[in-house]
């Protein structure tokens, strides 16, 4: 499909990640129980975004894994890639959004609580690397589209019912 895209916005798909430098923006659409985590170096205006689907790579039932899919591996990979691009590991900060509960069920297995589990896993992964979370918008039951500007370090969050806001 041919799609016209704003050259300054890098789109990240589901279970994917990417890195941008200002003036480009980075965006991911339709976060539900998934979590969008942004790790950035404020001074260098570099930011990376991962669209995480599952909390832990131990859930993987096949050999080779897509590192962007799992919270634990995605955060490590994101930091590695940022450092390769010239970010300083010691000053990295993070923002995150997502982890909603989109459907209400009477009986809930582990998979029903995947949103909160993803959020917890991202928190843990960031804490392990001593990366502080500056702002977050997690939980609830709305889908979110998020866009991060590495220049202003603001995360724009759009939902269907609750409008847009910056954190």
């Amino acid at each position: 499909m041919v799609e016209l895209r704003d050259p300054h916005i890098v789109k990240v798909g589901i279970a994917d990640m990417n890195i941008v430098k200002s003036p480009s923006l980075i965006r991911t659409s339709g976060l539900g129980s998934c979590v969008g985590v942004i790790v950035y170096d404020e001074k260098k205006e570099l930011a990376g975004l991962a669209h995480v689907m599952l909390p832990d790579s131990s859930l993987a039932k096949s050999g080779s894994i897509n590192t962007a899919k799992f919270a634990d591996t995605a955060i490590k990979e994101l930091v590695n890639r940022l450092v390769i691009k010239g970010a300083r590991a010691s000053v990295l900060k993070a923002k995150m959004a997502g982890g909603a509960q989109m459907f209400q069920f009477f009986s809930g297995g582990d998979m029903m609580r995947i949103g909160p589990r993803n959020v917890e896993a991202v928190r843990k992964g960031l804490a392990n690397l001593n990366i502080p979370i500056i702002a977050e918008d997690v939980g609830g039951n709305s889908g979110r589209t998020i866009e991060f500007n590495p220049k202003t370090c603001l995360l724009n969050i759009r939902t269907v019912n609750k409008g847009t806001r910056n954190i």
Binding site: I14, F103, G143
Partner: peptide, 8 residues
Amino acid sequence: DMVGATIS
């Protein structure tokens, strides 16, 4: 809601 949020 958004397709991405529901189908995922």
